[in-house]
Design a protein around this nucleic acid. Structure first.
Lengths: 189, 189
DNA sequence: AGAGCAAACTTGTCGCTACAACTATTCCTG
DNA sequence: CAGGAATAGTTGTAGCGACAAGTTTGCTCT
């Protein structure tokens, strides 16, 4: 078994990507913690719920959308439930399943936290990249995810943001969240 | 403050990048844990030492090269020291400072772990991307890191893998290459 | 129909990381 | 050449995530 080492180009790309992998999550997390008392993961959990029809999702589905394992999600949901941001509701159709539903308090929390978080994402990622590079990020991530997640579990979510629908993907809550797209900013670089 | 929401292209890129950020570390970690009993971070700690002159680095420098905070590194080094993979040596020049030095056992460990890890990186990243995309990864990461790390602390390391020197591809086995080249480095920095 | 298996969650434990002190040197500046 | 600030590390604690069981419900096959 001969193991081909990485050449300079490959190594350079990897080292840098690794640095991003290491540093970026901490920055995003810190901002949300500071400004909203939420983990980045907690935020996305709430955010995914806020976009779902009826602000409700089954645990498994929510886990997929947040790229989390079920045990992890379960723990997080327990904490969020304790803080009154969401609630567990037994699923009538399948009694094994549990629906996580965003409370009004949780909804308010997301709405309060969103602008700051989006601003951070903008500041650290979107604004420093060109439109072309953003598309490259999409393509590169797709390639990596295809290998990383052969079952295409993540696909369900991340296909959602393709140029698929012209209308909306449906839900009223969703529409409300999306309505904020309205801004026209010809972002600086 | 206008609500700076993300448009479709931006959101798509971000959602996917986020998925990579979430999933990739776990995969790399799992492989190293399984095959070598090392965390990805532990591996890189050892790897950075293995590349350093005399297989020795000061804690602060090592922290920078691994993108870690000092407290984190300190804990990790304590654990690795307990396992005999490296040792703390007081720095003669500055009595506040501590040198972390790779032991022979640690050296062997890195050499044993490297091929599997590189194979994983290859499999999940390098092999699924074109050369062009690899360069895009470099450029994009650079842009993000420049904003993320204004002090350019990371720069010290990741500049190292530019087309600067020859014979310096920076792999953990790099030190081996140096030995082959007869570049024997004694005495610490 | 009932046995066996899979799916959907939960729970408990352990290890790692961030954050916040704290100690010990060295640098700097009047 | 004091004395305060900055630098280099360590340590303690609290909290989150991974992993491994465990439980309940649904599915399937003969």
């Amino acid at each position: 078994m001969d193991t081909p080492w990485l050449d300079r180009r490959q190594l350079r790309a990897w080292i840098r990507l690794r640095a991003v992998l290491e540093l970026l999550p901490g920055v995003l997390d810190a901002q949300l913690r500071r400004d909203s008392g939420l983990t980045e993961f907690e935020y996305y959990t709430l955010a995914m719920l806020s976009e779902a029809p009826g602000r409700t999702l089954r645990m498994t589905e929510l886990a997929q959308q947040t790229n989390a394992t079920l045990p992890r999600l379960s723990h997080v949901v327990t904490r969020l439930e304790g803080r009154g941001l969401l609630e567990r509701v037994p699923c009538p159709e399948d009694r094994r399943a549990i629906n996580a539903r965003l409370t009004d308090h949780g909804w308010a929390k997301v709405r309060q936290a969103a602008p700051g978080h989006v601003a951070t994402v903008r500041h650290h990622i979107v604004d420093v990249l060109t439109d072309e590079q953003l598309d490259q990020v999409t393509a590169i991530s797709d390639a990596i995810l295809a290998e990383l997640d052969p079952s295409r579990a993540v696909a369900a979510l991340y296909t959602r943001y393709d140029e698929a629908s012209d209308g909306d993907d449906g839900s009223p809550d969703d529409a409300e969240a999306r309505r904020r797209d309205g801004r026209t900013d010809s972002s600086q670089a």
